[in-house]
């Protein structure tokens, strides 16, 4: 069976490498990564890939939509479309954040292993992104709480431990999170100075 030609549209080099690794593990494919936004339609038309993989949220997706539709007599048909060979697989892909454009006539059993591999990688990216966001939010909260403590220490002449105890007690009394109370205090202090 001929090797499948796959294009991965991904700007981030690190991510692109991980996707290629994942795809290679699913079989022997000819994989090309396109990182530039300009010339996307032309490059894909030139290369005539069997499958194009792209982040669901990539703005360049609309360019691929056009390739899926070309039907004018002067245009060379690329005839790629959003994969609809297997509804569950398509849904899993979109939920993971990847969309696949597949050339007309490619057998579903050839698409599946590739899509499975792509989905696994994109799931990993989502998890990493969620973790990064959570870490960042936690750090932000820490900073706010530190500032609130400093404000209390200065205003009431108490030490750090007492300041934190006061924040925690207020939060418990009001059934709120410590970070929320700290945020309100910092904002109010900003208005008063």
């Amino acid at each position: 069976m001929a090797r499948l030609s796959i294009i991965v549209v991904e700007r981030d080099r690190e991510r692109a490498l991980r996707i290629v690794d994942g795809l290679m593990a699913s079989g022997d494919h000819a994989i090309t990564v396109i990182a530039e936004e300009t010339g996307l339609a032309r490059r894909i038309a030139e290369q005539k890939p069997d499958i194009v993989l792209i982040d669901v949220a990539d703005p360049s997706r609309d360019v691929l939509e056009e390739l899926a539709l070309v039907s004018g007599p002067m245009e060379r048909p690329v005839a790629m479309f959003v994969d609809r060979s297997d509804e569950h697989l398509t849904r899993a892909a979109i939920e993971a954040g990847v969309s696949a454009y597949v050339v007309d006539g490619l057998q579903p059993e050839r698409i599946k292993p590739i899509l499975d591999a792509a989905i696994a990688r994109f799931h990993m990216f989502q998890k990493m992104r969620a973790e990064l966001a959570a870490t960042k939010a936690a750090l932000e909260e820490r900073k706010i709480i530190d500032r609130a403590k400093a404000i209390l220490m200065k205003a009431r002449g108490i030490d750090e431990e007492a300041a934190y105890a006061l924040l925690r007690k207020t939060a418990m009394d009001q059934k709120r999170r410590v970070a929320d109370i700290a945020q309100q205090l910092v904002m109010a202090a900003g208005l008063l100075t």
Binding site: A57, P59, L64, E95, S99
Partner: peptide
């Protein structure tokens, strides 16, 4: 906030 019309269509179609 969405980045493309294809994404907009897919999110609506999938019920997201």
């Amino acid at each position: 906030r969405l980045q493309s019309w294809a994404q907009c269509r897919d999110m609506l179609g999938m019920g997201s």
